[in-house]
């Protein structure tokens, strides 16, 4: 078993008076792909967003419990959220490029980290785009607007943008849900490659996708973690009846 990268303990989250996550405890190992599955509104995306404190942006959210990243509780008062997010990157469901050039998009993270040397930025942009398997497609139009890319290209560019900050963990919130099968395949291939260097947590409602890319799978239902284990086991011999019903398509 690999080292534990993220550990949550009794994580409870309220939106106002409504409990959205009920006492989630789970361990996410380093340099593996962990998938969160479950029907819409089950809390899987909410849980993902607690891992880099993106939920801080939503008013009326109350959180108790602990999220340990490398053994540090990220909800500790002493924690600097900005630096935390540099370490825990995120790719969103809807690709969200800035209305800037491809180059500026990818260079955004390094720039806010104080890298202004043009040569260095070019190097980072190239490396990041290569790692996201999109370099060949865009290398001749780095200074065109990112809005001109196709949906799949935009999403891979957003991944490159996240990689440029050199995170250790990448959170992916249904990264392929809006994409066609070919683009989805490319993203999946990319995830497979990325897990050599990064810890990846992916939310998906596509069970085949979870089965294809992940090493571990967590099944959420109505704000609760129902079952968590090796992907192969979850998809073949789940312990819980609800998991089995969901996977065999009886609800969700």
């Amino acid at each position: 078993m690999k080292e534990i990268k993220i550990k949550t303990k009794d994580l409870i989250l309220y939106y106002g008076a409504k409990m959205a996550l009920n006492s989630i405890s789970l361990d996410i190992p380093e340099k593996e792909v962990t998938a969160f599955i479950g029907p819409s509104g089950c809390g899987k995306s909410t849980f993902l967003r607690t891992l880099n404190r993106m939920n801080d942006l939503i008013p009326n959210v109350k959180i108790t419990g602990e999220v340990l990243v490398d053994g540090l509780n990220i909800y500790d008062k002493q924690i600097d959220v900005v630096n935390l997010r540099k370490k825990v990157g995120m790719v969103f469901q809807k690709s969200n490029p800035f209305t800037k050039s491809i180059f500026e998009n990818v260079a955004y993270g390094p720039k806010i980290n104080g890298i202004n040397n043009r040569k260095k930025l070019e190097e980072i942009v190239e490396t990041s785009l290569k790692k996201a398997f999109i370099w060949e497609e865009v290398k001749d139009r780095l200074h065109d607007s990112a809005m001109g890319l196709s949906g799949g290209q935009q999403q891979r560019m957003c991944i490159a943008r996240a990689l440029a900050v050199e995170p250790e963990i990448i959170l992916m919130d249904e990264p392929a849900s809006a994409l066609d099968p070919i683009s989805t395949a490319k993203i999946e291939e990319l995830i497979f490659e990325l897990k050599k260097h990064y810890t990846i947590v992916i939310v998906t409602h596509n069970m085949q996708q979870a089965a294809r890319v992940s090493d571990l799978t967590a099944f959420f239902y109505l704000g609760e973690l129902i079952e968590f284990g090796k992907t192969r086991k979850i998809f073949t011999t789940p312990d819980k009846k609800q998991t089995e019903e969901y996977i065999t398509g009886r609800f969700g």
Partner: peptide, 9 residues
């Protein structure tokens, strides 16, 4: 990755 200013956690 070859970025030197890598953020140390």
């Amino acid at each position: 990755p070859t970025i030197k200013n890598k953020f140390v956690f």
